[in-house]
Design a binder for these strands. Structure first.
Lengths: 181, 181
DNA sequence: TTGACAAATGAACGTTGTTCATTATACTTA
DNA sequence: TAAGTATAATGAACAACGTTCATTTGTCAA
């Protein structure tokens, strides 16, 4: 805050006339940057089928994170501003992802999945890669572009699996035995 | 550090006789906890085929993260101790994952994948979910157990896709992504 | 010139992680 | 026991941080 004030050629106290605290300021900055992510996602040309479209969006998401690592961390890694009691409002960029999935289902390219669950799964996957690439740049990653492609391919193929592998409280053939407590 | 010293009934300065700085102390604590993760992963009973085994390990990984959120953050989210120049040593727990994948390939349950790439993809997926559940507990997640199962299923199905969907560079033929085997 | 309101200030506070000259402790040797 | 020495522990002090608030500065209408 002090350095920011210095850079702005004002006193530290002045910042607190416009932002309640550091969190709020950071959030405002990030908000601005994420408006651009949203624009970027929405500007993704709708070429090819919805799945291709979705994949392009996923890549745009990841690349945005890598291009704005600090903003990304503020948005999804650091503890979020203590919202107190009001319900969590999912980020509009997340809604964009849900839309992309819905389009796939509606055009029959994805089986009838639970959109809520599936979107959270996909988001987790792309977030995981983004976050790790940012937080552990020294890790011996394989070629980044290839890695991103593989992850997106894995996620999209994975969610497109036939409904038979989906449990409804029943048995989906795996993972009942050991881990459950 | 001060609070820790108080809890230990010693002076703040004493801590610095045993640890260079806060980072090193934190890392030591986390290291201890991760030895347990490793034990947990290795203790996963080898029931069923290697894929089932792998899935159980993935779930154990995620649940470990959720059970030790602070340790997990220290290990994979916070900036790692500045190693200076020495090469990054992948966490032993990560090697455990690679082993699990290798077993799947060797038993023919997975196509001939690039183990390095695939392990990084899978790690990204499970890390993403773990990290998000920890960092955004207020997000309107679907039922957690279900979500974890879905993600693991998605990842394992996704990496098991036929080699035809793997291509260098440009166009990924996702023609019928849900193609069943 | 005055009065009133808003904007900006910067000294000060409490809390961090960290350092280091000083003191206490334990152990060896005469 | 007494003296000497290496080791362990101390806690006051420091710099940097986010934050607050009594005070000053600026602006403009009356």
């Amino acid at each position: 805050m002090r350095k920011l004030a210095a850079g702005l050629e004002c006193s530290p106290g002045t910042l607190y006339l416009y932002f309640r605290d550091k969190d709020e300021l950071l959030h405002a900055v990030v908000e601005e940057s994420f408006a651009e992510l949203l624009k970027t996602l929405r500007a993704v040309p709708n070429e090819g089928d919805p799945i291709r479209h979705l994949k392009t969006k996923l890549r745009a998401y990841i690349e945005f994170g890598l291009r704005n690592p600090n903003h990304y961390k503020c948005a999804f890694v650091l503890p979020s501003e203590s919202n107190g009691d009001r319900p969590y409002r999912p980020h509009p960029a997340f809604e964009e992802l849900v839309q992309g999935l819905r389009a796939c289902v509606e055009s029959g390219l994805l089986p009838e999945v639970n959109l809520e669950t599936t979107s959270q799964v996909v988001w987790s996957c792309i977030h995981g890669l983004t976050a790790l690439l940012i937080a552990r740049p020294a890790f011996p990653w394989v070629l980044k572009d290839r890695l991103i492609d593989e992850l997106i391919e894995t996620a999209t193929v994975g969610i497109a699996r036939p409904a038979a592998t989906r449990e409804e409280g029943g048995d989906h053939g795996h993972s009942r035995a050991g881990a459950r407590k």
